[in-house]
C-alpha cells in the first residue's frame, strides 16, 4: 500500500518534469518559434536573478497582504450579512434578488468604476478584491444557514436554547462546510482581482512587476512572475484546505463526544 502511494507520487512528479524537458527541447531545437517564448532554463535563471533582488519580495508581500486583507474584510462582511439574510425569511425574500444581480455583474467591468472613484491606489485594490471575494462567501453562508435541518432547530426550541445560542451552536456549525467552500472561492478571487488591479495600473505588487516585465520585453522574468502567482494561489489554497480540514475534524470529534 505504502509502496503504491510512493509510486503514484513519483508518477505525479514525472509528468511536470517531462513537460519541462519537452518545453526546453522544443525551444532549443527550434520546433516552437515564438519570438518571446523563453525556455525553462532562461526562466530559472531569471528567477535566481530576481530572488536576489529586494523588490521581488516587496512585490510578493504586497500582493499577498492585499489578498489576505481583502479576504478577511470580505469574510467578516459576507458571514455577517449572510447570517442576516439567511436567518430571516422576510429579509431573504426582500433582498436576495438584489444580491443575485450585484454578484452576477462581471467583476472585471467593475474595475474601471473603481479606478474612476479611487484612482490607482491601495484602496482600489482592496475594495475590488473585497467585492469579488464577498459574494461567494455571502451566498454560501446564506444557503448554508438556510439548509440547516429543521429537526435540529426544533430540538433547539424544545430544549429552550436562546436565539443566539441556536445560531452559535446549531446553525453556524451545520452551515460551516458550505461557508468554508465560499471562503475558499473567495480567497482565490481575492488574489486574482488583486493581480488584475495591479496589471491594470496600481503601481505595486506581482501584477505590476509582471506587466513591467512584459513592457520591458523580459519574457523570462514575466514567466517567473506568472509561476509565482500560480505558486501563491496554490499555496494559499492548500493552506486553506489544510486548516479547513482541521476545523471540520475538530468539529466532528466534538460532535462525537
Amino acid at each position: 500500500m505504502a509502496q503504491t502511494k510512493t509510486k503514484s507520487r513519483f508518477i505525479g512528479w514525472f509528468a511536470p518534469i517531462i513537460l519541462l524537458i519537452l518545453w526546453q527541447l522544443s525551444i532549443v531545437t527550434g520546433i516552437i518559434r515564438f519570438r518571446y517564448f523563453p525556455s525553462p532554463v532562461a526562466v530559472a535563471q531569471a528567477f535566481l536573478r530576481l530572488a536576489n533582488s529586494g523588490r521581488f519580495y516587496g512585490n510578493l508581500s504586497h500582493t499577498v497582504i492585499v489578498t489576505l486583507v481583502a479576504w478577511i474584510i470580505a469574510t467578516i462582511l459576507g458571514v455577517l450579512f449572510g447570517l442576516l439574510i439567511g436567518l430571516s425569511l422576510p429579509v431573504w425574500k426582500g433582498v436576495m434578488a438584489s444580491v443575485d444581480v450585484l454578484r452576477s455583474l462581471p467583476i472585471i467591468a467593475l474595475v474601471p468604476v473603481g479606478v474612476i472613484i479611487f484612482g490607482f491606489t491601495l484602496r482600489l485594490e482592496i475594495v475590488i478584491a473585497t467585492y469579488a471575494a464577498l459574494w461567494p462567501i455571502l451566498v454560501n453562508t446564506v444557503s448554508g444557514v438556510r439548509q440547516t435541518r429543521s429537526e435540529l432547530l426544533d430540538i433547539g426550541r424544545i430544549i429552550r436554547m436562546s436565539r443566539v445560542e441556536r445560531v452559535w451552536k446549531l446553525i453556524l456549525p451545520s452551515a460551516l462546510p458550505l461557508i468554508l467552500v465560499g471562503l475558499r472561492l473567495g480567497l482565490g478571487l481575492s488574489l486574482v482581482l488583486a493581480i488584475v488591479t495591479e496589471i491594470v495600473g496600481t503601481p505595486n505588487g506581482i501584477g505590476y512587476a509582471l506587466i513591467n516585465a512584459e513592457q520591458a520585453l523580459h519574457p523570462a522574468q514575466m514567466f517567473v512572475y506568472i509561476l509565482v502567482t500560480g505558486v501563491i494561489g496554490y499555496l494559499l489554497n492548500g493552506l486553506f484546505i489544510f486548516s479547513a480540514r482541521r476545523i471540520l475534524s475538530t468539529e466532528k470529534s466534538a460532535e462525537k463526544n
Binding site: 503514484s8 508518477i11 519570438r35 486574482v192 520585453l217 512572475y225 500560480g230
Partner: peptide, 30 residues
C-alpha cells in the same frame, strides 16, 4: 488507470494559475 496520479499535480497547478497573469504572457507570445 494512472491518469490521475500522473496529471493531478500539473492540472492542480494550471487551474490555480490566475488567468489575469497569463494574459500578458499570451499577448507577448502570440
Amino acid at each position: 488507470k494512472w491518469g490521475d496520479s500522473a496529471f493531478n499535480p500539473v492540472l492542480d497547478f494550471l487551474r490555480n494559475l490566475p488567468a489575469a497573469a497569463v494574459v500578458p504572457a499570451a499577448a507577448i507570445i502570440l
